[in-house]
Design a protein around this nucleic acid. Structure first.
Length: 287
DNA sequence: ATTAATGTTCAGAA
DNA sequence: TTTCTGAACATTAA
């Protein structure tokens, strides 16, 4: 579930402790249920990274980047249930990989925890990094979109706007939850073809996109009912309480009290208000 | 006790 | 070229 706000929260949560640290060990966790998808192999990664310093901790779309002093970079994809932790995992059985760090005189550990095990950890040289997260692979970051970007995004496909928002080549960082939330905020039907959005709808979507993502970051992300997402200190996020439509099928729309509807688009659940997000009727702007 | 659903990404097919 | 389908895996709700 980590989408842009959750990954941004991870990065902010570990940056202080991790940036500038020397890697003194890197290995699979002793109790791990199974090895994770790791490229190259874990041993090879360890040989490449131990003895080097982490010079920066950044986010690209839904990935965490740990850049090392010799130009190699860890690219960590949490996918559905991956977490970066500094302490206190939800359970020990799903700890997968640990970085042993030293910063000044202090030792500490950074863990990758992943219940479903769909996450990946790659250690890439600059060319590999470019291939993995470059502009031909991932579109512009969802927090840095201009009006021109939105025109480009919408012009490129006839798919429903909800489906287009999830295409990481078009725009990177938005996931299923926040796509529904930002379309509600913008008052746009998820069924509208992306290329048929009007200029004013695109403007509303641009505003709604950054508002929703920044608000979610401020709340440190969304911890859904399964409780999987946690910050670097194993604490829940707070944004789930502020969701307007996501996972609220049948509950009254916070604006007009029409029951929220759940549909399926591209095999993913979409939630929306059929009144505020009507395809035909024009409505006033809303909060 | 099966079956459906859950966030994400990718390979392979239509 | 673009778009759709299923699979990777673990866990919970119905």
């Amino acid at each position: 579930m980590p989408e842009l706000p959750e990954v941004e929260t991870m990065v902010r949560g570990i940056r202080q402790a991790v940036a500038g640290s020397l890697i003194v060990g890197y290995e699979a966790c002793p109790n791990t249920c199974r090895p994770l998808t790791v490229r190259p192999t874990l041993d090879r990664q360890a040989a490449l990274c131990v003895g080097h310093t982490i010079v920066s901790v950044r986010r690209r779309a839904k990935r965490v980047l740990l850049e090392l002093d010799h130009g190699w970079t860890f690219v960590i994809e949490p996918r559905m249930t991956g977490l970066m932790l500094l302490a206190d995992p939800p359970d020990v059985g799903h700890l997968r990989v640990v970085w042993q760090l030293r910063h000044g005189g202090e030792s500490r550990s950074l863990w990758f925890w992943d219940r479903r095990g769909l996450g990946t950890i790659s250690l890439l040289n600059p060319a590999g990094l470019e291939r993995a997260i470059g502009p031909h692979k991932l579109g512009p970051d969802a927090l840095e979109l201009t009006a021109d970007h939105w025109r480009e995004i919408c012009g490129r496909t006839a798919r429903p706007i909800k489906v287009a928002l999830l295409d990481q080549k078009l725009v990177a960082g938005i996931g299923n939850l926040y796509a529904s939330e930002m379309l509600f905020r913008a008052g746009i039907s998820p069924l509208t073809s992306a290329c048929r959005l009007t200029a004013s709808q695109r403007d509303r979507l641009q505003a709604a996109c950054s508002e929703v993502l920044l608000e979610a970051i401020r709340y440190e992300g969304s911890t859904l009912s399964d409780g999987t997402y946690r910050n670097a200190l194993n604490q829940s996020g707070g944004y789930q309480n502020a969701h307007r439509v996501y996972d609220r099928e049948g509950e009254p729309c916070p604006v007009c009290e029409t029951p929220v509807v759940r549909i399926v688009q591209a095999q993913r659940a979409t939630f929306y208000c059929p009144c505020c997000q009507s395809r035909t009727r024009r409505r006033a702007s809303q909060k």
